[in-house]
Design a protein around this nucleic acid. Structure first.
Lengths: 333, 333
DNA sequence: TACAATAATGCAATCGTTTGCGCAAGTCAA
DNA sequence: TTGACTTGCGCAAACGATTGCATTATTGTA
């Protein structure tokens, strides 16, 4: 069964493709009766517009691409949800890609999305500014980074929290609970989120005159495995920290496993404090104190920004939007 | 800055579009030197193929659509992850849509995906067989349902667990722990997963001669709120169950909130037993015993099935693939 | 040198829409 | 009756790629 096209309808009705197109779209003058006939037949024969052809002709796909490092991470899936909502409201389609925390896949995904002629891009990058953007300048289409701004991409739009300040205050609050032996498993420093959270952490320790123990502070990938391995290494050292800060949820989850395996209790023996370990049930991670990015809101704002740039005039202007993070299980804290 | 097309390259090199196209794709005979020149200029001028045009011409988008009811649900985001992986391996692009547990949105999403000419569809439906499929018969493109088969869609491909048997055995295992006052918050019965899990539950009680208490067995939407509200209602009744089975994770999470608010301990006062409350950390939901669908595997298999049908001969054949569910926190159980 | 075989390239149609422009028929006022 | 408008419709050119079928250039062989 082949797809039915405008031509098929036109032929059956003895009309031109032009008229059929106009009848269905409502653009242009078509006699009421004709319109009715066309609409009826279109309905009956299950006509469905071919977006490829339309988009090609109009040079507009009404779709927005988003690439995230890990779609199964709750943070990102909520970002997507937020973006999806805005797209739906505004008549856009969201095309989701997963880079699997891999810079090369990220490039691939961006390339594919660009080839598919998306009108805008939301990117949670895993590394430095994708080469693809140095080659296909951003004035070709709106690009908004979320979560972190990759090195080299400072003059792009961004929606995120202020990672430095967040880490600074988060760490201070740990210290103010009386902890003085504090470690951190930080994220990759080539991502600004990784770097800034690390810097905030260090600054807080220095401000408060708390000793920095190099063995307790490590740079790591954002993965369960790295969290687990790095935590094990720290636990196997001579001295042990009493509180650990994690740059993201996966790191924390991996580390928790190591901590429990070592027979330690959370938080009595080891306080676990993490970014983005938000859990909507409010129940399931009672032991982890978390400072969360408002994921859905980030998705929404990023998407709105794209749409705004798409329809608006300030296509060129660069804006950094900083949202407030929020604590969970902060009460027990 | 306008996009550069084959024509631009052709003009600059004094060649025809044909030759340029062939040089870049490697189809057809083109002199080595010419190819080199073309490739070089394409590179330099940042040429990027326009997928719309290509797909239109080839009647092939190499993309697969997936629509899920809730992308922020861990189960579905893992399904997507699995599907995404297969797509990536096979050179397809996955287009993700969220129906927000809403039959109408689901229809919309399917329509959009079809208009975008996806080559195949993976659907986790929220209801009965989408009207759109009765109008655009499945022999137009491969469709695979996952998680559950909507009423009216029995002759479609399906990848899921055997919900009836799973619920039956799951419930039996609860009974075998000595529980005799057992309730269930079931999912919508118009979804086969909802219905089958409910039937399995009831059958197990009858088999074992355990009393069915109507007040403890309710049909519900898959949402946190419904779980919370329905659980509160049950808790406010005269008698109280000692164990509750939930048809999905959201229901369980919502209910847990209600249970804890009522001052009850899990599992001492109330055992919580749920489908798909899998948590990869192995730590965070120690109180919930869960029977999980292998989400990533489901995504993979569904996607592989599509690709298979796309390239294979058995385009017509209908297959139901049943995967084994697995327990978590079953040890403490 | 001539003719065939082969290599390299180009023409033009095609995929399914949309839309500027033109044309015929109808309406209306003077 | 004429000229000016309006209405309803169609022609044909886009959009940017791919490809069957020429056509031309090159090489090889007798």
């Amino acid at each position: 069964m082949n797809t039915v096209t405008l031509k098929d309808i036109a032929d059956q009705l003895g009309l031109s493709v032009t008229t059929v197109s106009r009848a269905l779209s409502g653009n242009g003058r078509v006699k009421k009766e004709t319109t009715d006939k066309v609409v009826e037949l279109a309905e009956k024969s299950n006509y469905m517009v071919n977006s490829l052809a339309r988009s090609l002709r109009l040079s507009d796909t009404r779709s927005i691409g988003i690439v995230v490092p890990d779609i199964s991470n709750n943070f990102f899936s909520n970002v997507i949800k937020g973006a999806q909502e805005v797209c739906h409201e505004r008549g856009y389609m969201l095309m989701v890609c997963n880079s699997d925390e891999n810079a090369h896949y990220e490039e691939e995904a961006l390339k594919t999305l660009l080839e598919k002629q998306v009108s805008g891009l939301i990117v949670a990058s895993v590394g430095s500014c994708p080469k693809i953007f140095s080659r296909y300048p951003k004035n070709r289409l709106p690009v908004v980074y979320i979560d972190n701004v990759p090195t080299g991409a400072e003059n792009y739009d961004l929606v995120s929290i202020d990672n430095y300040t967040a880490a600074l205050e988060f760490t201070r609050s740990v210290i103010s609970r009386g902890y003085r032996e504090i470690g951190m498993i930080a994220g990759p420093r080539k991502q600004s989120s990784g770097l800034m959270r690390y810097k905030g952490f260090v600054q807080a320790l220095m401000d408060e005159g708390v000793e920095l123990v190099p063995e307790w502070i490590v740079e790591s990938e954002f993965s369960l495995e790295s969290g687990y391995e790095n935590m094990k290494k720290i636990l196997s050292g001579g001295k042990m920290p009493r509180a650990m800060l994690f740059a993201n949820n996966k790191l924390a989850y991996g580390a928790v496993k190591a901590i429990l395996e070592a027979g330690l209790r959370i938080p009595e023996d080891m306080a676990v404090v993490s970014f983005d370990a938000f859990d909507h049930t409010g129940l399931v991670t009672p032991q982890i104190v978390s400072l969360n990015q408002p994921a859905e809101e980030i998705g929404r704002r990023a998407c709105e920004r794209i749409v705004e740039k798409l329809s608006g005039s300030d296509h060129q202007q660069v804006k950094h939007v900083f949202l407030k993070p929020f604590y969970t299980n902060g009460n027990s804290w």
